[in-house]
Design a protein around this nucleic acid. Structure first.
Lengths: 213, 213
DNA sequence: GTCTATAAGTCGATAGAC
DNA sequence: GTCTATCGACTTATAGAC
């Protein structure tokens, strides 16, 4: 469908992505992108016409990536707590490896909500998000008595928050707690365990009396 | 100590705060700050010399605010779960009311870690953060058997994450889930309840066998 | 396709009158 | 203290030679 991008075009996009994620739309400089990509500044405009359009390409790709990271972390098999373990570990893996993506999305998407709309439309094809695997799994688990009744949206938010936020605040955390390194596998492993334990114990079904019919 | 700021100076600072929080350091325009404050652009430089210094003043004030929000949400009295309830409710209250502050801090502090360092030094006077009220409360609660043993840092992160992150992603959430309004008191109340329930059940001490010595 | 040179516009900052 | 006018630096974008 698309004419294949040239090697040079891909290199520019790759570098543009790095620069935009670091500096944001306003802070990024076409000059810097050109230099780091090893091409002339005029080439950027030859391939992408304007900063606006280059940014648009990067933003859309990264929003897609952001959503995919989430979906790719949702396993297809296993009971609820296996599902949870796989999800937490895969998602933390991704967020810890490149927290810049989350930082960038949270900062930039606010002024570009339409992009998110388009990407979601493309990925979910109009299917409501409440019917996506993550929510289905929660509802099924509740119905089966695997976990106590909770509001699926809030459980989703709780898991997500605990996986992401600490890595978002990494620069602050590491200033406050001198010895800390959030990228270290020791810290990452501790987080996985603490999150999973909190959720597992926190969702344990109430001492089962007979469930009403 | 400080000569009292004039009315006009305060108005400029107030507007500058709004603009910087909305657009970031790079995106903010002195022109816009001047207009919205109802003064001439030259006045900005008369009072604050440069954009750099105006920004520095705003950033330091907001970082301080960010830390204070946290500390002010920590109550002095009550048992552990009362403490938790007060904290979650007060902190969510603040974050929900102005998520821009968190967004701004997470985006900007990365390139200005020194500011955070200075603010913390000023607030904590060199006292390690691990000795701050929040951590003490957790340690005390564990020692007293009120809650099961957990890593204090991670419990702190878990609570914080669940209180903040959903409001950070509000623009995304509200796109994904059409009917949602995260500022609505209904949503806020639901979050408080879901967080508190998860934590309370998740931290319940194990069926006490004799604790080893 | 690639480069140099430069146009066109924006923004922070200041000079200087009042 | 306040305003207008403008400078000078920087940034995106393009014209035009090769």
């Amino acid at each position: 469908m698309k004419p294949l991008s040239t090697e040079k075009e891909r290199r520019i996009l790759q570098v543009a992505r790095d620069v935009f994620l670091e500096k944001g739309k306003q802070g990024a400089r076409m000059q810097e992108i050109a230099q780091r990509a090893g091409v002339n500044k005029a080439m950027l405009h030859y391939y992408f016409r304007s900063k606006e359009q280059l940014y648009a390409k990067v933003l859309e790709a990264e929003v897609t990536q952001f959503v995919r990271h989430l979906l790719d972390a949702v396993p297809e098999e296993g009971d609820f707590f296996q599902f949870l373990e796989v999800f937490v570990k895969s998602y933390i893996q991704k967020v810890a490896a490149s927290p810049q993506l989350v930082r960038f999305i949270l900062w930039e998407v606010r002024d570009n909500v339409q992009v998110l709309g388009r990407v979601l439309q493309h990925i979910f094809q109009g299917e409501p998000v409440k019917n996506s695997p993550f929510f289905i799994r929660i509802q099924t688990a509740i119905a089966a008595g695997e976990i106590r009744p909770v509001e699926p949206l809030h459980l989703f938010l709780n898991v997500l928050s605990m996986c992401v936020y600490p890595f978002l605040m990494a620069p602050l955390l590491e200033t406050v707690i001198p010895g800390l390194d959030v990228q270290a596998s020791q810290f990452i492993h501790q987080r996985e365990q603490e999150i999973l334990q909190l959720i597992e114990k926190g969702l344990r079904p109430e001492n089962q009396r007979e469930t009403g019919e």
